[in-house]
């Protein structure tokens, strides 16, 4: 925190000193903030969550329906003849991948749209003006995106469990990869939202990066089916580790190295977090 000290940080501390000097106040003084502005952080988080809950048909139900439709068409188109992946039916193999695909798309959509809409409508100042540090800003937005990702995962998972015998092999892996995936995409969404100036820009990132990666990183097939050259490429794709690790949590079967995946996604999240915090600190494309 000391390294990101700024005018904003300094202003936050001044009231503390003032309050200490004046024990008896004749008028309401400035609010005292501790090391973390808990109330401000909570307010930002609540705004981010209420923002998507307000249109939950589009943000929770629609992804749930989409994942069920995908499950239906892929099972009907490919599952005939009882093909198996490892020792499980194709539908059961597919389910965790589809849940992860929705986490990826929805967590990204949450933070990117929130920041971009605020920028375009000009109410981003409402977030930049309050006494929130860069860390608190990043945390508030990211936590909103993570909540969206996990809510969608839970909704889609429950819906699929009605039709499929889905068991959990390793709860720790499920939680670890679900949280890290939500966080990674929430952070990417923030970077995208801050960088973008128009909705076209975000649509381009979604269409050309997020969608293809969420489709082609092993959601629908085992990575072993790829030709040799592409197998190597797949192992450089962070989304592959998210999907593979998440699937391991349910089925106990994985294609890549789990430990490497678990550490790599967490490490990437730390790096992305630092980028986001730096963007808030410098005001890149946020402050004139």
């Amino acid at each position: 925190m000391a390294t990101t000290e700024s005018d904003l940080g300094a202003a936050r501390r001044r009231p503390l000193a003032g309050a200490a000097l004046q024990p008896r106040r004749s008028h309401p003084g400035p609010r005292n903030l501790g090391r973390v502005n808990w109330r401000g952080l909570w307010t930002l988080y609540l705004r981010e969550v209420k923002r998507f809950l307000n249109v939950f048909t589009q943000t929770i139900l629609a992804p749930m329906v989409t994942s069920l439709l995908f499950l239906a068409i892929f099972t009907l188109a490919l599952g005939r003849g009882n093909i198996k992946f490892g020792d499980v039916p194709y539908a059961v193999f597919l389910a965790p991948g589809l849940i992860m695909m929705q986490i990826i798309q929805q967590a990204f959509a949450n933070t990117s749209s929130s920041i971009l809409i605020s920028k375009v409508q000009g109410n981003i100042v409402d977030v930049l003006m309050p006494p929130l540090s860069h860390f608190e800003l990043a945390l508030g937005f990211a936590a909103g995106g993570v909540t969206r990702g996990l809510s969608v995962a839970l909704a889609a998972g429950i819906a699929m469990a009605i039709f499929l015998p889905i068991g959990i092999h390793d709860p720790l892996a499920v939680v670890w990869f679900a949280v890290n995936a939500s966080l990674m995409l929430a952070l990417l969404g923030m970077i995208g939202g801050i960088w973008a100036e128009k909705f076209d820009h975000i649509a381009a990132i979604t269409n050309f990066v997020i969608m293809p990666l969420s489709f082609l990183s092993g959601t629908f097939y085992s990575i072993k089916r790829l030709p040799d050259g592409w197998n190597l490429v797949a192992h450089l794709d962070p989304f592959f580790y998210l999907i593979d690790g998440f699937r391991y949590g349910f089925l106990g079967h994985h294609d890549g190295n789990l430990a490497v995946g678990a550490v790599a996604v967490a490490g990437l999240n730390v790096a992305l977090w630092l980028v986001v915090q730096r963007m808030f600190a410098t005001g890149y494309k946020l402050k004139p």
Partner: peptide, 16 residues
């Protein structure tokens, strides 16, 4: 166009 291409790619890779 992209979503059509993605669907085709995925089907080709996942078809038994």
């Amino acid at each position: 166009m992209i979503s059509a291409a993605l669907f085709l790619a995925v089907f080709v890779l996942a078809l038994p």
